Amino acid sequence: MTVRHFVTWKLAAEDAATRAADAEGIRTNLEALVGVVPGLRALSVHANTLYPENNWDIILESELDDAEALAAYQVHPEHLKVVEYVKPRVTERASIDFAV
């Protein structure tokens, strides 16, 4: 059973330049996990480009082998480094996971 893992964040920065830099940094750090974290098949990160006043700012879309791979991903040391990078740059986080 493949697992899809989505996370969305609202950025903390208020100025456009910092928000863009933070979004790019988050994307770069997360996408670097592909090939590093076992069971992580694919991962992409997208910044919101429409209706910024109503929508969340960034979304992570990932695919993992199974629920065990998702659990391992969440505690993988390289993922935890990215978490520490992301935390000070965001104000809110929401996620959803489902089997396909």
Rank of each mutant, 00 (worst) to 15 (best):
Y51M: 12
V90G: 02
S62R: 03
E92T: 14
A99I: 14
V100M: 13
V82Y: 14
A32W: 01
G25Q: 03
E63K: 06
A21M: 07
A99N: 12
V37K: 05
T49A: 10
A16H: 06
G39Y: 04
A20H: 13
V45R: 01
Y73L: 04
L43Y: 00
V7L: 10
I26K: 10
A20P: 11
L43D: 00
A16M: 10
H46C: 04
E14R: 13
A13V: 02
S95A: 13
A47E: 06
V83L: 13
A47D: 01
V7H: 06
S62H: 02
D57H: 12
A21D: 14
N54E: 14
N29E: 14
A13F: 08
A47N: 03
V90Y: 10
L30F: 04
D15G: 09
G25W: 01
R41N: 06
V37Y: 02
L50V: 13
V7F: 03
V86R: 10
A23M: 05
R89P: 02
A32D: 03
T49H: 14
I59K: 00
E84Q: 15
E92W: 12
E24S: 15
N48K: 08
A12K: 15
A21C: 06
V45G: 00
A21K: 14
A21Q: 14
A20Y: 10
W9P: 05
K81Q: 15
A42H: 08
A69C: 08
E84L: 09
V7G: 03
A16V: 06
R89E: 02
A32C: 09
P88F: 14
T8S: 07
A72I: 01
L50C: 09
R93I: 05
E92L: 15
W56V: 01
E61Y: 13
T28Y: 12
N55G: 07
A17Q: 14
T49S: 12
L64Y: 10
A69V: 10
R19V: 11
P52D: 12
E92Y: 09
A23E: 01
S44W: 03
A69R: 03
E14T: 15
H5N: 05
E78Y: 10
F98C: 04
N55F: 14
V36K: 05
I59D: 01
A20S: 15
A72W: 03
D66M: 04
V86E: 08
V83P: 06
G35T: 02
A94C: 06
V100G: 06
A72Q: 08
G35H: 05
D65R: 09
M1V: 07
T91A: 04
S95T: 08
L33H: 10
G35I: 05
A32Y: 01
H79E: 12
E84F: 02
K10S: 15
S95R: 07
R93F: 02
F6Q: 07
V3Y: 03
V3S: 02
H5A: 04
H46L: 07
A42D: 11
D97N: 09
D15P: 04
T8H: 08
V34K: 10
E24Y: 07
A16R: 12
W56K: 08
V100D: 11
E92R: 15
R41P: 00
N48C: 09
V37S: 01
M1R: 00
E92Q: 13
R19A: 15
V90D: 04
A67K: 03
P38G: 05
W9Q: 02
E61P: 00
A42Y: 07
L50K: 12
A23P: 00
V75S: 14
P38L: 07
L80Y: 09
L70T: 00
E53N: 12
